[in-house]
Structures are given as C-alpha cells and as structure tokens.
Simulated assay, not measured.
Amino acid sequence: MRSRIVLLALIATTAVCLNSTAQAHVRVGVLVGIPPPIIMAPPAVVYAAPAPLVVQSVQPTPTTVYVEKTQTSPPSGTWWYCPVTKKYYPYVKGCSSGWVEVPVRPTGPK
C-alpha cells in the first residue's frame, strides 16, 4: 500500500514537471536506508531535600504569682518633711537625717 502511494506521488510530480505550461521546477528525492537508532536518555532522578529535624521542648506553664502591694506613699493626710533639705517628699527622694511626719495643712483662701 505504501509503495503504491509513493509511486502515484512520483507519477504526479513527473507529470507536472513535464507539462509545458507549468513553470515550476521540482526535485524529488528518495532516501533509501535504515534510519539511525533513537537514543533516549534515562529520566533524571530528583531527590528532595530531607525535612529539617524539629525538636520540640515541653516546658511547664508558668505559675501566676500575686504579690500584695504594700503602701509606699504616705497616706493622704500626711506629708513627709526633710529638715536637712527643707523640702517635702516627693520633691526630695531621700533624706539623710530622717523624714518627719507632718499633718497636711490646706493652702489657699478660706
């Protein structure tokens, strides 16, 4: 069947070439032989990187500690006076002679 198709194609090409009205030049060639073997490379092997080692440490939940706040400031009815600097707390943070407790005196018009 294949040789029949090749023969018909050859005859048609020859007829076109021999026709005086056709101005085309056609070359027909036939390759006879064994085709070269097709060499295929093996598929590439791709290795995935190993997953990183994850180390999890378990730590105990911290315990909530409540610390009772002590009274650090004087009560609202008392002022603390420093006789050495002649100033009141909190304008002076420390007093070398010791603090003197003074009752609060209202200031301003009566």
Rank of each mutant, 00 (worst) to 15 (best):
Q56E: 01
M40L: 11
W80K: 05
K69M: 04
H25W: 09
V45L: 13
P42D: 15
P52S: 01
S76W: 12
V45D: 01
G94V: 10
W80N: 02
P83E: 02
T72K: 09
T107D: 15
H25V: 11
V84D: 15
V100Q: 05
G108L: 05
V92F: 14
P43S: 05
T14K: 06
V65R: 00
C17Q: 14
K110R: 13
L7S: 11
T72Y: 15
S73H: 02
S97Q: 13
T85K: 13
P109F: 07
V58T: 00
V104I: 11
E101Y: 12
G33P: 01
T78L: 04
G29W: 10
T63W: 02
A24K: 04
V102W: 08
A15W: 15
G98K: 05
V84G: 04
V54C: 01
V65A: 09
L31A: 11
A15I: 11
V100D: 10
T13Q: 09
A44V: 12
P62L: 00
P62E: 00
V100F: 08
V30F: 13
G77Q: 09
V102C: 08
P50E: 08
S97D: 15
Y89T: 04
I38E: 15
L31K: 00
V6W: 00
V28L: 06
V45K: 08
V100L: 09
L31T: 08
V32S: 04
L18H: 05
R4H: 08
P43D: 12
R2C: 12
T72L: 14
L10W: 03
P43M: 01
V16W: 01
I38V: 13
T14D: 07
P74G: 07
V67I: 10
T107G: 15
I39C: 11
S76F: 09
A48M: 11
V46M: 12
S76A: 15
C95E: 01
A48Y: 03
S57C: 14
A41N: 08
V6Y: 04
C95W: 02
A51Y: 14
K93R: 14
T14L: 05
K86A: 08
E68S: 12
P52K: 00
G98A: 00
Y89F: 08
V92G: 01
I5K: 01
Q71H: 04
V58H: 00
V65L: 03
P75V: 13
P83A: 08
V30W: 02
S20V: 14
P50A: 10
P60C: 04
V84M: 13
Q71P: 03
G29K: 13
P37N: 11
S20Y: 07
T21G: 06
W79D: 12
P90M: 05
R27E: 03
V65H: 03
H25K: 15
A22G: 02
N19H: 03
N19I: 06
Q71C: 11
T72S: 06
Q59F: 02
I5C: 06
A49P: 06
V30A: 09
R27H: 11
K87Y: 10
V45F: 15
P52N: 07
C82F: 02
P37M: 05
V92T: 09
C95Y: 04
K69A: 11
Y81L: 07
I39H: 03
Q71V: 05
P83Q: 04
Y47H: 07
P106T: 14
T13D: 12
Y81V: 05
L8N: 02
M1T: 15
S3T: 13
V16E: 12
V102Q: 10
Y88F: 13
T70E: 09
